[in-house]
Design a protein around this nucleic acid. Structure first.
Lengths: 195, 195
DNA sequence: ATTAAAAGGTAATACAAATTACCGTTTAAT
DNA sequence: ATTAAACGGTAATTTGTATTACCTTTTAAT
C-alpha cells in the first residue's frame, strides 16, 4: 500500500468502519482465539498501530464488534396494528434475527468465549435479546389492559412466546409461515400449538 | 512426589482414569484454550510425559474426555411399562441429563471449540443426544403400531417431544414435576402443553 | 511554511504454552 | 539378577502471536 498518512477531512471514520467490518467477518469465520491481529490488519488495509491506538487491544476490538452487532435487536412491535398481527410482525422479525447464519455464529463464538469475556456476553444479551423481551412484556401488559390475551403474568407470557419462536429455530424449520393471530397466540388458544 | 516408576499390576489404568477425571474437571472450569497441560499434569499427579505418551497431544486428551462424556446418554425407555409412563421415565432422565451444570458446561465448551474440533462436536452429538433421539423414534414407531399416540411421522413426533423437554430447560424451570401420561404426551393431548 | 495529528510499515520484544529431550526411579517379567 | 516397561521431574526447545518501538508519509491547522 502506498496510500497512507493522515486521512482527508470527513473520512476520519471510514477506516474505523472498514476495520470493524473486516474484523466482524473474520471473527465470524475464525472465532476469537484462532484469529491474529496481523490477519485483521492485513484484511482491513489498516496498520496494527491504528488498531491498538483505537481499540487498545484485541479484546477491545472484539468488544466493539460485538457491541455493534447487538444493535440489530431493535423492537419491531407496531402499535397501530391489531395485536395478533403486531405479534406476527414481531415474530417474523425475531425468528429472522436469531436464524440468520451470522447471528448464530455470533452467539456460538460468544458462548465459547463467555469464560474469557463474561461481562461481554452478559452485555450482549442485555443490549440484544433482553431488549426484545422487555419490549414484548410491555406489549403484553398494554394489550392485556385492553382485554386481549390470557390474563396471566405478562413475563411468563412473553417467555413462553419467545420459547416457541426459538423452538422453530431449533427444529431447523427453514420456512416460517405466518398464520395470523390464531397460530401465534398459542397460549390463549392451545389448539394452534405445535408442541 | 516421591512415588514414581512403573505402576503395580492391576493399577495400570488407575492413573489414566485419574487423569481423565482431572482433565474433565479442569476443562469444565477453564475451557480448552485457557488451560495448560502443565496445570492438568500437576492436578492429576501425572507427568506430562505420561499425558503425551497416552493421548498424543492436547487435542487427543480433550477428545478422550469428551468421548467419555457422551457415554452418559444411555437409552432409558423401559419396554415393559405403559407407554405414557415409559415416556415419563425417559423425559425425567433426559431433562436431568441436559440440565446438569456439568452437561451445560460441556456443551458450551464444545460449541465454542466447534471450529477448532468440528469432527469432535459432530461425534459428540452423534454418540450422545442423537442416540437418545433415535431410541425415541424407534419407541414411537413400535407404540404407534400398537395404536398409541397420533399416527404421524414418528421423527417429527420425537423432535417435537424433545423440543418441549428442551424448552423446560431453557425456561430455567428448576423443578420438574412429572404429571403422568397426560402431561407428557403433549402431542396427542394438547391440553397439557405449556407452550 | 511550519508544526502537529493520524496513519502506514517493518521489525523488535515479550511471553505463554505446547511439545520434546534427558535422566532417574520403581516394578514386572524372564 | 537383569532387563525392559512405565512413570515422575525438570528443563530445553519451539512456536505463535499479542504488544511495542521506531521511522516514514500524508494531510490539517495555524
Amino acid at each position: 500500500m502506498v496510500k497512507c498518512g493522515r486521512p482527508p477531512k470527513g473520512q476520519e471514520c471510514q477506516s474505523r468502519e472498514r476495520l470493524l467490518d473486516s474484523a466482524l467477518q473474520l471473527f465470524l469465520e475464525h472465532g476469537y482465539g484462532d484469529l491474529s491481529m496481523e490477519t485483521i490488519a492485513k484484511d482491513a488495509h489498516v496498520s496494527m498501530r491504528t488498531i491498538y491506538s483505537r481499540f487498545g487491544n484485541k479484546a477491545g476490538l472484539f468488544g466493539a464488534v460485538i457491541k455493534r452487532c447487538s444493535d440489530q435487536f431493535v423492537d419491531r412491535l407496531p402499535e397501530n396494528l391489531e395485536p395478533g398481527e403486531a405479534l406476527t410482525v414481531f415474530a417474523k422479525h425475531y425468528v429472522h434475527l436469531i436464524t440468520r447464519p451470522d447471528a448464530v455464529r455470533i452467539r456460538t463464538i460468544l458462548i465459547g468465549e463467555s469464560l474469557r469475556f463474561p461481562e461481554l456476553a452478559a452485555q450482549f444479551y442485555e443490549q440484544g435479546p433482553q431488549r426484545a423481551r422487555d419490549a414484548l412484556v410491555e406489549f403484553f401488559i398494554k394489550k392485556q389492559q385492553g382485554g386481549y390475551f390470557a390474563q396471566m403474568n405478562p413475563r411468563v407470557l412473553a417467555d413462553h412466546f419467545l420459547s416457541c419462536l426459538r423452538n422453530e429455530h431449533f427444529q431447523k424449520l427453514q420456512s416460517y409461515r405466518p398464520r395470523k393471530a390464531g397460530g401465534l397466540t398459542v397460549i390463549s388458544s392451545p389448539k394452534g400449538c405445535h408442541c
